[in-house]
Design a protein around this nucleic acid. Sequence first.
DNA 1: CCTAACTGTAACCAAGATGGTGACAGTAAT
DNA 2: ATTACTGTCACCATCTTGGTTACAGTTAGG
Lengths: 146, 146
Amino acid sequence: MGLSSRSAVAIHALTMLARWDHSLTSAEIADSLASNPVLVRRILGSLRDADLVWATEGRGGGWSLARAPHEITLHDAYTAVEEGPILSRHAHPPSDACEVGRHMQNLLETEFRDAEQAMEERLGRTTIAHLVQQVLAAERAHALPK
Amino acid sequence: MGLSSRSAVAIHALTMLARWDHSLTSAEIADSLASNPVLVRRILGSLRDADLVWATEGRGGGWSLARAPHEITLHDAYTAVEEGPILSRHAHPPSDACEVGRHMQNLLETEFRDAEQAMEERLGRTTIAHLVQQVLAAERAHALPK
DNA sequence: CCTAACTGTAACCAAGATGGTGACAGTAAT
DNA sequence: ATTACTGTCACCATCTTGGTTACAGTTAGG
């Protein structure tokens, strides 16, 4: 399989918040995602715990960015909502009686960690501000009929 | 969550096959993994479909490498047993009525693909031969009491 | 030829993660 | 008071995963 789609939801929501410079409700974000408000609040809750957004309760409440869009990377969104390693290690520790089994865990740990870091490093290179730019550019291109 | 541990099993098995230069049975590999032979055969079967190993049936049968260890990378093992993207995209297509929703799928696709490629590229830099070397080195170090 | 030792698969299971949903308490504006 | 939000719990169906049993097919050895 792969990781959950929570990162996709998180990035989508952050981009919406950056695109329009006012607070949005979980229902509005859920509409854009064709999903439902509770799911959105769960994920935005994780983003709040990571200090990427904040919410005001009560009537007229909603969600806002806690940082400038160019200071939020896709990696920030990713780590806020996803936990644990990407590449699963051995389900059980291998046999200590085997020469290979004795060392594979350590070796794999190094290799897998490096590989995961490469991915995360790449995610850290794109900011929410960059995505907003691209959305605006795509929208502008679409506005020109020909 | 994350991906399955099939990559770990695959790499473990390939390293065993490279370490000892003769064929191994699924039972022997399962012993080292503290797992069971059927699981091993399932995964080795995928590696066979990817032309990384081959098997002989019947009594005295077993598995052997189909390539030199320095010509098998961790990325080869990974792609043989794992399929689909690592970072899940939107569960449902977002709303077309939303300016952000209209474009997020495409934008995310690009970003996520780049990130995944960064990880795969890193996995491609390590070969099974390299792991065997490290196993031997670790074993040698352990042999010296002081 | 028969048996033992393998691969190759299908079928099934329990456990965990996931996306989705209803319900409801708490909070704040009107 | 009512309305419109957040925050959270509980529950659900579905899927993936690792594990296991069972068994058919294949090959070597006695």
